[in-house]
Simulated assay, not measured.
Amino acid sequence: MLTALKEETYKFCHEKIALLGLLVLLVTTLYSTLTKTINKSTLIFAFGAIEWIPVIIIAVGAAFFEMEYDNKTIVMLLYKNSSKLKIYLAKFLVVFCYSIALALGAILLTFLLSLLTVPGQYHWLAYYQGHTILTNLLLNLFGAVIYCFFIVGLSFMLIMLVKANTVVICIGLVLAYFGASFSTALMHTFPTAVGILKWNPLNMIFISQQLTRGSFALKSNLTNFQLIIATVVYGIIFGLLGYYLFKRRRV
C-alpha cells in the first residue's frame, strides 16, 4: 500500500491538474477580493474558498482517475500492481490530502489578502458569532475538508459511472450552487418526511458553514455531530460504490 501511495503521490505532483487546482483557488479568492466588500464574514469564509475547494476537488479527483484510461496507463498500472484496492485507496488518499493542502493554502491566502486589503481593521482574536474570527475561519475550512471527503468519494463514483470529466464537473457545480437550496426546498415541501429527508446527500453541503452558524441547523435539521458523521458515511458509501465500478470497468 505504501508503494502505491508513493507512486500516486509522485504522479499527482507531476500532473498539471494539481497546479491548476491551486491556480483556480488563487483566481477565485482574488476575484472575491475585488468584487466583494471585505468584512468579518468574508474573512471567516476565506474569501469564498470554502465554496470553491469542493468544486476543485470534484474536478481534480475525476481527472486524476480518468487520465489513467485516457493515456492508457491503467494497463501498466494494473500490471505492476495486482491489487485494484490499493490503487483505488492510494488515489483516494492523495486527492483527499490535496484538499487539506488547498485548505491550508486558503488560510494563508486569507491572511495575506486581509493584510493587503484591510490591514489592522479586524483583529483575528476578536469575537464574531460566538467564536474568534480565527476560530470561525478554521472551523469553516475544517467543515470544507470533511465535505471534500464526501466529494472525493462522489467524484470517483461518478467518473466510473459516466466516464466523462465534463459531466462530473457540471454535477459538482450544480451541487455547489443548488444542492443546499434543493435540499431545503425538498424538506419544506414534505415536512412530514423531514426525519428521513434530512439525511439526503444534498444536505451534507451545509457542513461547510453550519459549524460556525448554528442557525443553519434549522435548514439542515441536523446537529453538527450528525452532519459530520453523515458526511463521512456518505463519502465511504460513494467510495465503495466507486471501487465496485472500478473493479468491473473494462481496461
Score class of each variant (00 low, 15 high):
114 S>W: 10
58 I>N: 03
127 Y>E: 14
155 S>E: 01
172 G>L: 02
215 S>E: 14
76 M>C: 15
129 Q>G: 09
81 N>L: 12
88 Y>L: 08
60 V>A: 09
156 F>D: 09
231 T>R: 00
47 F>C: 04
118 V>M: 06
150 F>C: 07
56 I>W: 03
169 I>Y: 08
174 V>A: 11
15 E>N: 15
229 I>E: 07
168 V>S: 01
42 T>Q: 07
122 Y>W: 05
151 I>E: 09
174 V>K: 05
148 C>E: 10
153 G>M: 04
81 N>D: 12
118 V>L: 05
151 I>Y: 00
186 L>I: 08
146 I>F: 04
147 Y>F: 14
225 F>H: 11
32 S>F: 11
26 L>I: 10
190 F>G: 03
26 L>K: 03
112 L>W: 09
247 K>G: 08
141 L>K: 02
201 P>I: 00
160 M>C: 14
64 F>H: 12
63 A>K: 14
68 E>P: 03
137 L>M: 07
251 V>F: 11
168 V>I: 04
214 G>H: 07
222 L>R: 00
60 V>W: 09
151 I>F: 01
214 G>C: 00
39 N>S: 01
66 E>Y: 15
21 G>Q: 03
12 F>G: 02
103 A>N: 00
124 W>I: 15
165 N>M: 12
112 L>R: 07
165 N>D: 10
1 M>F: 13
147 Y>V: 09
55 V>W: 00
212 T>W: 03
68 E>S: 07
151 I>P: 06
43 L>Q: 04
11 K>Y: 08
29 T>C: 10
92 F>G: 05
53 I>D: 02
82 S>E: 13
28 T>Q: 06
215 S>L: 11
7 E>Y: 14
105 G>I: 05
41 S>L: 11
191 P>A: 00
245 L>T: 04
164 A>K: 15
172 G>M: 01
192 T>V: 14
178 F>M: 15
101 A>F: 15
153 G>N: 09
125 L>G: 10
96 F>W: 10
37 T>D: 13
180 A>R: 14
7 E>M: 11
